[in-house]
Amino acid sequence: MDTPSLSHLSVKDYAQIYEPAEDSFLLIDALEQDLIFLQKMKPSVCVEIGSGSGVVITAVAKALGTNSHCIAIDINPVACGVTQRTAQLNHTEVEVVTMDLMSGFHWDNRIDVLIFNPPYVVTPSEEILENKVYGDITRAWAGGERGREVMDRLFPMVPNLLSLYGAFYLVVISENCPDDIKRVMDELGFDMNIVKERKVRGEHLLVLKFVRK
């Protein structure tokens, strides 16, 4: 899987949107490692929540080509515009919608691949809500208690979103308590496995994958 070019982005953009970092690249590596699985599954609909610069969904869209419809979602309208530009400049098709998680999504059980590199950093809860401005950069990383507050809102929706053989990829750090996430998702009917993990600069990053039991 090729890493998309981001040469159109500068420091000025990264003041408003998440600059791709180790977590973004670990997620791309994990998806690349799973590429044969993904191609075999023939996903007709792939959705990335929190696309930021668009680096991940653009890589996915390039790898899957016209075989699937790729959609990027972000709560930050600036990130949405940047994602659109990243896809265009890398000559691929990504549809972009500004929304909070999957709150405006009607289709039940029709997403084949769901991807989320959430705001996972442990912060005081107020940091997520305090900044009411949707474009605020804090939302890109502030995860509240145990870093779980944003992703925890998504988990209960996953059974209604994913298609029968669909897969959900999630980036976490050890502080998010992956064992507890495994328990939560198990109760919702999903098996979890670790696709990739890496320790960088005091952060233990993991890419988790969930499929129906």
Binding site: V45, H69, I71, E95, V97, D100, S103, G104, F105, H106, W107, R110
Partner: peptide, 20 residues
């Protein structure tokens, strides 16, 4: 927005809206 994407969107998240 392509019409394929439109097919997937709803406003049910609005307070008081059922299907949207």
């Amino acid at each position: 927005m392509k019409l394929l994407t439109h097919n997937m969107l709803t406003s049910k998240c609005l307070k008081g809206v059922n299907v949207g």
